[in-house]
Design a protein around this nucleic acid. Structure first.
Lengths: 233, 233
DNA sequence: GGTTGAAAATGTGTCAACAGTTTTGAAGGA
DNA sequence: TCCTTCAAAACTGTTGACACATTTTCAACC
């Protein structure tokens, strides 16, 4: 009931578990469920006006994509990544996105490359449409790789984790300018069909981004500290 | 009850969901649940002597690691990989295992490397202990990378999928000899601390293995054909 | 004989209650 | 005052029943 009123006008969430999964995800994004906080089944169930079953299912899915950590009878918590974990996350992104970039250099059509270049420059000129269809360079390149398994991994699991910490590093102008240059160089390598170069450039680019995020998030003193102890409601 | 009698003498499965997860996994490995077959909640529940809840949870976990495919109200099925999907799987392995290999070349200690070389040669000489602690070169290298996220991905999700299709390619003597040579070359590159070479060699090695598997599994004519239609019991 | 439609059968989604475990917090002793 | 102990509270794990969707069956109809 409360669930229906949310926003079920456009698409059809099919099952309650799916819907709850999306809503908890939004709570995590909005930091109402910040890293380290406890995710309580009953509280969320009453909040969403559903039974504990669907909530339980959603939490298991979140556990599956490593957004919440949980052990048998202990309470589930939103993951709070240590500096080490963030480093490992970006290393994995380096490996996968670099390889995807190499594949893209082989498989993209000329027109496709030119369109991507045009979109990149348009977005940089500030002509990006408000917030709809916001230009995402990395996602575009990854999808151009054509490898669905890598696409799902990067645009699914890892993307959610990155998004939590992307909020922190946020909009830093000089970084934005540098990123544009690096993106442009990568596309140029792709257009030259130099897969090895494109992969190398993408790796360097991701590594720089990782160092940037790491610098902004020095150290969460203790993974689940006093402040994060408050309940989910 | 029936569950207790299984083999709960050594470790403690903690929760029923965990236990059921493992048992379904075994059913899949033993091809009693072959690719394309239907995974029925109630049938498995009565078979294991538990309620549908834990079974449901286990199936969701299997769905999470992409071992079963499922849509809202349709029955769950064990995935049957198309040639395209197998190709993508090995490409992802190339990207991750190659990168892990590069990391290993940087981070392994001298003694660690020598020990791995010794184990490799011992295993090749047929001195491998019966089936316990069977030597797994790839897992050893991946774990030596020190990146837990990559380790979990390769030794968890992807490993299960590969294992289903490893059975098919099975033991081919000449391939085994070639693999030993390639493994040895990779370790030599690691010992020389040549991360780029080690990564390159590992990629070639994985790609060859992938082509080998693809050659053995030409095409499952239809992903879920007549024979695979039989029930889970 | 083949096709269409409704009803039974099968199976998944959801719920509320019960059981077992962990955490909380207060009473009692050093 | 601090630590230990133990019982109540809170929470997760599990269960059986019910609601809903899909598939199959089978009989009526063209």
């Amino acid at each position: 009931m409360e669930l229906q009123a949310a926003e079920t006008g456009e698409r059809r969430p099919e099952t309650l578990g799916e819907e709850v999964f999306g809503r908890i995800l939004e709570l995590i994004y909005s930091t109402e469920l910040a890293p380290g906080m406890v995710v309580n089944e009953s509280v969320l169930a009453t909040r969403f006006g559903v039974s504990r079953g669907p909530v339980r299912e959603a939490i298991r899915r979140l556990q599956g994509i490593q957004l919440v950590s949980r052990e048998p009878f202990l309470r589930a918590r939103v993951v709070s990544l240590s500096a080490q974990a963030i480093l490992e996350l970006f290393q994995m992104r380096e490996a996968l996105e670099g390889y995807a970039c190499r594949l893209a250099a082989q498989r993209m059509g000329e027109a496709e490359i030119d369109a991507l270049i045009a979109d990149l420059e348009a977005a940089h000129s500030g002509q990006q449409p408000p917030e709809t269809t916001r230009f995402d360079f990395h996602e575009r390149v990854v999808r151009a790789s054509g490898n669905n398994r890598i696409i799902d991994s990067l645009c699914g699991d890892l993307y959610h984790l990155l998004r939590i910490y992307r909020r922190i590093s946020g909009a830093v102008p000089e970084r934005k300018e540098l990123a544009f240059t690096e993106h442009w160089q990568i596309l140029r390598a792709i257009k030259m069909r130099d897969g090895a170069l494109a992969e190398s450039l993408m790796r360097s680019h991701v590594e720089r981004a990782g160092r940037h995020v790491l610098a902004q998030v020095p150290e969460p003193p203790s993974p689940a500290a006093t402040d994060a102890e408050k309940r989910a409601s």
